[in-house]
Nucleic acid binder design. Structure first.
Lengths: 106, 106
DNA sequence: CCGTATCCACGTGGATACTG
DNA sequence: CAGTATCCACGTGGATACGG
């Protein structure tokens, strides 16, 4: 019964990485290449982008497609499980807006 | 346009603390006393519970009511902003269950 | 273009002891 | 009962340089 809370905590762990929210956001709905993501994520380093993407891949939220061409081409996209996050992301956004609104008026 | 993502990130920052999800969960719908929370949060230390509660209070999600009696009595409850999180928490839970389901079958 | 390899600063979170 | 006060381990995240 107490483990009712467990899925919530697990979910927060999985998407709680510093850049993961933004990565998931930008991957929806379109697949993106490595440097495309890098460009829209202000200030992220290559190491961090790689790391966060690998973790998301490991957790089954993101699919990594490598094309054996030169120059290298890699595309990242959301899996079904990743797509299923969109209600979470949007409710998070709605609440975040309310939160920012509250803070502003203080 | 890019700051469309900002509320989402902000929200994740606010509720992303290690125990915050669980605290918010247990504070809904009933107010709780300090040691009540401590009892349902397996393994949390006094220091951490205090710290997380203070941060949630600072962020306006939790209200702290001190009764000037002996022995001391303090009650924590959700503010309106805190209540407004319930859609987020429940969508998080729904997705978390799906996630755990996926992992189990692998 | 898409990474990996090192190295390191910093903050979060924890252990433990004490207090009004 | 509901905290503070210290001290510290550890992992996350970042800077920088190099490689296929």
């Amino acid at each position: 019964m107490d483990d009712d809370i467990c899925p919530t905590e697990t979910a927060l762990d999985v998407i709680g990485g510093k850049w993961k929210g933004m990565i998931l956001f930008y991957l929806n709905p379109d697949k993106k290449r490595f440097n495309e993501l890098r460009r829209v994520l202000p200030g992220i380093t290559q190491r961090m982008l790689t790391k966060q993407l690998r973790e998301l891949e490991e957790d089954g939220l993101v699919h990594r497609e490598v094309y054996p061409v030169v120059p290298p081409k890699v595309e990242y996209s959301l899996t079904d499980l990743g797509q299923a996050l969109s209600p979470v992301l949007s409710s998070l956004k709605v609440w975040g807006e309310k939160y920012l609104e509250c803070k502003k008026s203080k």
